[in-house]
Simulated assay, not measured.
Amino acid sequence: MQKRKFIPFSEVKHQKAIVVDSAHPNGVLLSHWRGTPTPEAIQDDTSAAIVLNALRLNLPELGVANVTANHFDIDGFVGVWALLNPELALENEELLRQMAIIGDFRELDLNHPLAGEALKLVCWINAKERALFYKPFEADTMEEKEAAQCVQKFNYFLREFGTVLGNPDWEKGAWEDEVASVLLGYRDVYKPDTMLTRYPEIGLVIVETPHPVHYYALFSRTQGFDIVLSCYQGNKYELEYKYTTWVDIASRPTLPRISMAPLAARLNELENSGRRWTFDAITETGPLLRLQGEDLTRTEAYESPTEREIYTSSIPVQVLKEQVVSFFDASYKGIERKYKWTWKEVKELNSGSGK
């Protein structure tokens, strides 16, 4: 197989490279980013899965010596590592696929026989990333931005990952706390006091559970849905578009993102707690609508709900749920699901709606 090396993203303009989970005009793109020209034969939901499909088929386009990405996350890292270690990657193909799903879409499914091992590896990466480098999106506020900063992360994890893959328990001290938090939350969202209401026609699932849990636990019950309304005790709420609508997923058609500006305006008419409902732009990776949402940095918004304060609303839960459902029912009227929405199409649908 082709011997490859990782190069910083800035070097792609000077030398052709396989570009993973990113885009560049001088690259062979293996990415689920919206609008990237992924060959039909290797299309998949995550970029790592696209890479693994390409390796499995031994695509001729893979005959490039350089590999890169413009950011570090688990999906992108798995794809880069797989290209540099193709034989070992194909031996561990299903485990790596699970890592990418958990890391990117936060959809943990402990019914999968390899999900437990994948979770350990994902949490090991999370822990080491925070301890040794910087949190996701923190580079936004640094002088040197993510495309340059992430090289140090790639260099470390490309060197160390093979050892931990072979024996995750060797690094148990790094991952055990987060794994425990995930498993406790997973248990909680499957208890009788957690209620789910699904609205498949609008891609919405309402999760009513006593308290916030880790994202990997919360989204474990949202597979196949793209909008999650979390309702916690004490009239605490968050509404979120999942990352599944930021990328091109291949497993199912989706509806486009709709600006939550009109919904926020309506909730502010009803809210008398003294706080205001705010919303993220539809181009954010996981747009949130919540009370005092503008107070969150991108790093804080990316963290699990357990890591941020969620404020008490004056709106009763039944009223809140009715407002959310009626908003999306009206917004999606006449819009059909499809594959590969373009950002141009999404923005045109939202023109005049606020943000």
Score class of each variant (00 low, 15 high):
2 Q>W: 07
5 K>Q: 13
12 V>F: 03
12 V>I: 15
14 H>Y: 11
15 Q>A: 07
19 V>A: 08
25 P>I: 05
28 V>N: 04
37 P>S: 06
44 D>Y: 13
44 D>M: 08
51 V>K: 12
66 N>F: 11
66 N>Y: 11
72 F>Y: 12
73 D>A: 05
74 I>T: 14
80 V>R: 08
83 L>S: 13
88 L>F: 00
94 E>N: 14
97 R>V: 04
104 D>K: 09
116 G>C: 00
117 E>F: 00
124 W>F: 11
139 A>E: 12
141 T>E: 14
142 M>S: 03
142 M>C: 01
146 E>R: 06
161 F>C: 04
162 G>Y: 03
162 G>E: 10
163 T>S: 13
165 L>S: 04
167 N>E: 13
180 A>H: 10
181 S>R: 15
191 K>S: 14
196 L>Q: 07
196 L>R: 09
208 E>N: 15
220 S>Q: 07
233 Q>I: 00
246 W>K: 12
248 D>I: 02
248 D>G: 02
251 S>Y: 08
256 P>Q: 08
263 L>V: 02
268 N>S: 08
269 E>Q: 14
270 L>F: 06
271 E>N: 10
277 W>L: 04
278 T>L: 05
280 D>Q: 15
286 G>C: 10
286 G>D: 01
306 T>M: 10
308 R>A: 01
316 P>Y: 11
319 V>W: 00
321 K>R: 15
327 F>D: 01
328 F>K: 06
335 I>H: 03
337 R>F: 03
338 K>L: 08
342 T>K: 07
351 S>V: 03
